[in-house]
């Protein structure tokens, strides 16, 4: 080895050593801050910032991997069609993070989890939503959810077979609240099963049901969302309102009806023409009335213990469709 090349090697080693010292003195400073501070700091860091933070230095890559902290209101596991591979893949949304391209096989999922562990293992989620019909095996859900602390586990099921898997999964999460979202119209046998499962959320946006079915569903469901309510009469509509108003448990129903049904209801409340904000008639108060230039009216009414929201309503347009949301708390559903 020539003297010049040896000298070059020595210089390289010295430069590397200096770099390390410089790095040590600068990063030690932040990473030597109290754990409680670093814990609080990581709580406020969004997913995309975590990804960038772990690229800054080894110490921060480790901090992100080890922090096991962070709270995100909502997480969701579902599948989608990936054009590039011409295959269905899984996606995971957490906060501002959208993880895609996840294989739904055990091996493929494991590969994702290995990397995911280094990004946000140990975070807490307010609600974790699983579209169970999209997931090939409940094991994938188990493996993923072991990485989180979950306040509420929401499982969406669109078929009887998936309902059975949801029934098996829920008891494995005794520490979090459970929410079963049923997206298929159950037959009488399935209804018997559902009644035993506690509070249910019916998301039946592809279905029309009768008022009698709605009343039945409300007896064991906190939320019933349907596309259209069939064979509605004023008396049936009033019955739905009375039932929701009288129930001490949170109850909410959302559906579309013909404008003539909404008009009958308003007339029964004593409003023959479009009311104004603040109008009161008997037990009904108009909390808000928005009149659009194209004739549409949006109403927020208070009747007994109910909030009633009517949207897309037009006077004297009998067959036109308006949406109604009725709840004994402020409605969480956006009326359609």
């Amino acid at each position: 080895m020539s003297i010049s090349s040896l000298s070059e090697k020595v210089m390289n080693v010295m430069n590397f050593s200096n770099d390390r010292k410089q790095h040590a003195s600068s990063t030690t400073c932040l990473l030597s801050l109290p754990d409680v501070f670093l814990h609080e700091l990581m709580k406020t860091v969004e997913i995309k910032d975590r990804l960038r933070l772990r690229l800054t230095s080894r110490a921060f890559e480790k901090l992100v991997a080890d922090s096991k902290t962070g709270y995100f209101e909502h997480g969701r596991l579902f599948d989608y069609f990936e054009n590039r591979s011409n295959k269905r893949k899984l996606a995971l949304d957490i906060g501002d993070g959208h993880f895609t391209g996840i294989e739904s096989t055990e091996e493929g999922f494991e590969q994702f989890l290995n990397d995911f562990n280094r990004i946000c293992c140990g975070i807490s989620l307010g609600t974790f939503e699983v579209h169970l019909d999209d997931i090939s095996s409940p094991n994938l859900v188990r493996k993923l959810t072991h990485k989180f602390n979950i306040d509420r586990l929401m499982i969406r099921v669109g078929a009887l077979s998936t309902l059975e898997r949801a029934r098996q999964l829920f008891p494995e999460y005794p520490r979090c609240k459970h929410e079963l979202v049923v997206t298929f119209l159950p037959n009488s046998e399935t209804l018997l099963i559902l009644r035993k499962m506690g509070e249910i959320h019916f998301d039946l946006l592809s279905y029309a049901i009768t008022t009698e079915e709605l009343i039945d569903f409300l007896s064991f469901s906190s939320i019933v969302q349907v596309r259209y309510l069939e064979s509605v009469t004023l008396n049936k509509l009033k019955t739905v309102i009375e039932i929701i108003s009288a129930d001490t448990r949170p109850r909410e129903a959302s559906f579309c009806v013909k404008c003539m049904s909404a008009e009958s209801l308003l007339a029964d409340f004593g409003f023959a023409r479009a009311p104004n904000t603040g109008d009161v008639n008997g037990e009904c108060e108009v909390i808000n009335c928005t009149k659009w230039s194209d004739g549409y009216i949006g109403l927020e009414l208070r009747f007994k213990n109910c909030h009633i929201h009517i949207r897309g309503f037009i006077w004297s347009e009998g067959d036109w469709i308006a949406s109604i949301a009725i709840a004994n708390h402020y409605p969480t559903l956006v009326t359609r």
């Binding site: 770099d19 790095h23 400073c29 932040l30 080894r58 921060f60």
Partner: peptide, 8 residues
């Protein structure tokens, strides 16, 4: 901001 050198 964090006064870091990339050591990767």
């Amino acid at each position: 901001i964090l006064q870091l050198e990339c050591d990767f």
